[in-house]
Design a protein around this nucleic acid. Structure first.
Length: 236
DNA sequence: GCGACAG
DNA sequence: ATCTTGTCGC
C-alpha cells in the first residue's frame, strides 16, 4: 500500500473512535485509481476469501482458497489471524476486513488471476467497496459477490438460473447486476473490483455456481474460516 | 428528520 | 458477521 501514507492508515486505526471521516476521504481519493479494464488474458485460477470473528480474542480470521478455473479444483489454501481494529460500518467494511485479506493474500504461493471478495466492488455509495479496496492496494484483479444490496436500485430478476437485472447508481450508471444463481432464492450482487469489467465478473460468478446460491469460491472460503474458527477456539 | 445499511 | 429451533417450500 504505497498509494497512501502508511502513517495516515495507522492513524485511522490507532485513534480510539476510528476516524470515519478520513476513511471516507480515502475512499474518495482511491476511487480514481480503479481500473475497469481486464488486467489478464486467460483466467486459469480464481480465489475466494472470507472472514470469521474470534470474539474472545478480538481478532479476525481470514481464509483464502485458490481454485483452477473453470474446473474449480482446489490448488491452495491459507489463513491468517489479525487484530480486530475497526468496527463494522456499512460502507466502510474494507477498513475492517481489508487488512486481514491483504495479509493473507501475501502468504499465497499461487497468486490467483482473479480474487473474489465477499462484498461489493464498484456497487458502493462512493464507488469504492471492499473489492476495489483490496484490488487497488494490491494492484490485482478483484470482483465482488455480495449476498445483499448496499447501494443502487434494480428490478427483481426472473426466477431462472442465470437471469439478471442491472444495478444502477443514482446517476443512472450501471454499477453491477442482481444475478439469479439458484431458483427460488434471492439473487446475489455482482460488481467489478479492480482490473476487471462487469461482464467478465458476471461470467466468472456464473461459472462458479455449483448448485448453491453462493458461488463456490466464496461458499468454500466461508466453510474454511468456520473450521478455522472452531479449531482456534478449542486450541485457545 | 426518516429510512437504508456489504460483513 | 453471529445467535439459534423449528419449519415452510421445493
Amino acid at each position: 500500500m504505497s498509494l497512501i501514507d502508511k502513517d495516515r492508515f495507522n492513524k485511522l486505526y490507532d485513534s480510539d473512535p476510528p476516524q470515519y471521516s478520513d476513511a471516507i476521504a480515502i475512499q474518495k481519493e482511491l476511487k480514481d485509481k480503479v481500473v475497469s479494464k481486464n488486467g489478464f488474458n486467460q483466467i486459469k485460477t480464481v480465489a475466494g476469501a472470507d472472514l470469521a470473528i474470534l470474539k474472545d480474542e478480538k481478532k479476525l480470521v481470514c481464509g483464502i482458497i485458490v481454485f483452477s478455473y473453470p474446473e474449480l479444483n482446489e490448488i491452495e489454501r491459507t489463513w491468517e489471524v489479525v487484530d480486530e481494529e475497526f468496527p463494522y460500518i456499512p460502507g466502510l467494511l474494507a477498513f475492517r476486513e481489508g487488512p486481514a485479506i491483504i495479509k493473507t493474500y501475501e502468504k499465497l504461493k499461487e497468486k490467483p488471476d482473479v480474487l473474489i471478495l465477499d462484498g461489493h466492488g464498484i456497487a458502493h455509495p462512493r464507488g469504492f467497496g471492499i473489492a476495489c479496496y483490496v484490488g487497488v492496494l494490491l494492484d490485482i484483479p478483484t470482483m465482488g459477490i455480495a449476498k445483499k444490496r448496499l447501494y443502487g436500485t434494480h428490478q427483481e430478476p426472473r426466477d431462472v438460473l442465470g437471469s439478471y437485472e442491472p444495478l444502477f447508481s443514482k446517476n443512472g450508471e450501471q454499477i453491477g447486476v442482481a444475478l439469479k444463481t439458484k431458483k427460488k432464492t434471492k439473487p446475489v450482487f455482482i460488481s467489478a473490483g479492480h482490473k476487471i469489467d462487469l461482464s467478465t465478473s458476471k461470467k466468472i460468478a456464473l461459472m462458479c455456481v455449483r448448485g448453491y446460491r453462493i458461488p463456490e469460491p466464496t461458499r468454500l472460503a466461508d466453510k474454511y474460516v468456520a473450521e478455522l474458527k472452531r479449531g482456534l477456539a478449542n486450541n485457545a
